[in-house]
C-alpha cells in the first residue's frame, strides 16, 4: 500500500513539473512580450532596456531562467511580478486564496444541500411528476453558461431594481470575513448561488442515477425482504453506497475550484480571488504571476486526484494494480 501511495505521489510531482515547463515555454513563445522592455517603460532607450535585462537576469539562457524562477517561487518565495514591480507573487496568491475559499466553501454548502436533496427526492419519487421536474431543473442548471448567469444576476440586482427590491444589496466586490461577517455573506450571496447552480444540477442528476441503480441491487432487495421501510432503505442503505461514488466526484470538483476553476464567477462578480488574479495576469502576460497561479491551481487538482485515488485504493485493493 505504501508503495502505491509513494508511486502515486511521485507521478503527481512529474505532472506538476511538466506543467511548469509547459507554462514557461508557452509564454516565451508568445510574441511582443519582452519583459525587459516592459519593465523599463515606454520610451526607454536601448541602454536602459539592457540594464534592466541584466538586473532581472533576463539575459541568461532559458533553462537557467526557468530554474531561477522556480528557485524564487518555491525556495526563496520572493518571485516578483513583471508588471507590478516589487509585488511578490506568493503573498499575492496567499491573499487571494481566502477569497476563492470563501466563494467555494459557501457554494459547496449550497450545492450539497440542494443537490443531495434534489437527487433523493427525485429518486424516491421516480416516475411521478416531481422526478422529471427536478431533472429538468438539473438539466437547465448544467446548460447555463455560468458567466452569463452571473451577468444576468448583476443586471437584475444592480440596475433598475437596485433602488427598490435589491436596495439591501451592496455593489459587487469583496469584504473579508474578519472585517464584517454580515457584509462578507451579503457580498458573496449571489456569487455563491451562481456558482452552486451548475454543481447542484450535476450532483442531483448523478445522485439520482446512482440511487436508482442502487435500489435495484441485491442488498436493497434483501433489505426490502426483511420488511424495512422504503425511507429507511433509501437513506440508510442506498444513499450511503451512492455517496461513496459522489465523494470522488466531490473531491475532484472542490480541488479544481479551490485551484481557480471558479475564474469566470470571480471575473463577473469582481471577486479578487485566485481566478481573477490569474485572469488579470493573463491579460497582462505577467509570467511570474501566471506561473504562480497555475502551479497553485495544478497543485490542488493533482492533490485532490491523488487523494481520491489513494482513498479508493484503501477501499478497494484491486485498484492498486492499475
Amino acid at each position: 500500500m505504501l508503495r502505491f501511495i509513494l508511486r502515486r505521489f511521485a507521478s503527481a510531482v512529474v505532472v506538476l513539473f511538466t506543467i511548469s515547463v509547459m507554462v514557461y515555454l508557452i509564454f516565451f513563445a508568445t510574441p511582443g512580450v519582452d519583459p525587459a522592455a516592459r519593465i523599463a517603460g515606454r520610451s526607454a532607450s536601448p541602454a536602459v532596456v539592457e540594464q534592466v535585462r541584466i538586473a532581472f537576469g533576463l539575459n541568461r539562457p532559458l533553462p537557467i531562467r526557468y530554474l531561477l524562477m522556480m528557485d524564487h517561487l518555491f525556495i526563496k518565495r520572493d518571485l516578483t511580478s513583471y508588471v507590478n514591480i516589487g509585488d511578490k507573487v506568493v503573498p499575492q496568491i496567499l491573499a487571494a486564496a481566502p477569497v476563492t475559499l470563501s466563494l467555494v466553501l459557501g457554494a459547496v454548502v449550497i450545492w450539497l444541500i440542494v443537490g443531495v436533496l434534489g437527487g433523493l427526492v427525485a429518486a424516491a419519487n421516480k416516475g411521478k411528476f416531481i422526478d422529471p421536474l427536478i431533472m429538468f431543473l438539473g438539466i437547465a442548471a448544467v446548460s447555463v453558461p455560468a458567466y452569463w448567469l452571473g451577468e444576468v444576476v448583476n443586471l437584475i440586482t444592480q440596475n433598475e431594481l437596485h433602488s427598490s427590491v435589491f436596495a439591501w444589496l451592496p455593489a459587487p466586490g469583496w469584504v473579508p470575513l474578519t472585517q464584517s461577517p454580515g457584509e462578507w455573506a451579503l457580498h458573496l450571496l449571489f456569487p455563491w448561488l451562481t456558482l452552486a447552480a451548475l454543481y447542484a444540477g450535476i450532483y442531483a442528476r448523478v445522485l439520482r442515477a446512482e440511487l436508482v441503480n442502487a435500489l435495484n441491487e441485491d442488498y436493497v432487495r434483501t433489505a426490502r425482504a426483511k420488511g424495512l421501510s422504503e425511507r429507511r432503505i433509501l437513506l440508510r442503505h442506498a444513499l450511503r453506497c451512492s455517496l461513496i461514488s459522489i465523494t470522488s466526484l466531490f473531491g475532484l470538483d472542490v480541488g479544481a475550484l479551490v485551484g481557480g476553476a471558479a475564474l469566470l464567477t470571480e471575473v463577473v462578480f469582481g471577486l479578487p480571488g485566485v481566478g481573477l488574479l490569474t485572469y488579470n495576469a493573463l491579460e497582462n502576460l505577467d509570467l511570474p504571476v501566471i506561473m504562480g497561479t497555475v502551479m497553485y491551481g495544478a497543485f490542488f487538482i493533482v492533490l485532490a486526484s491523488a487523494v481520491v485515488d489513494v482513498v479508493y485504493a484503501l477501499l478497494d485493493p484491486r485498484v492498486r494494480i492499475v
Binding site: A12, G260, A261, L285, I301
Partner: peptide, 22 residues
C-alpha cells in the same frame, strides 16, 4: 495516463486561455 494527468491538472480555462493567447 500521464498525458491525461497533465491536461487534467492544467486548470481548464488556464490551458484554454494560454493556448488561445498564443
Amino acid at each position: 495516463s500521464r498525458i491525461f494527468d497533465i491536461i487534467w491538472a492544467f486548470p481548464v480555462y488556464l490551458l484554454a486561455i494560454s493556448l488561445s493567447v498564443i
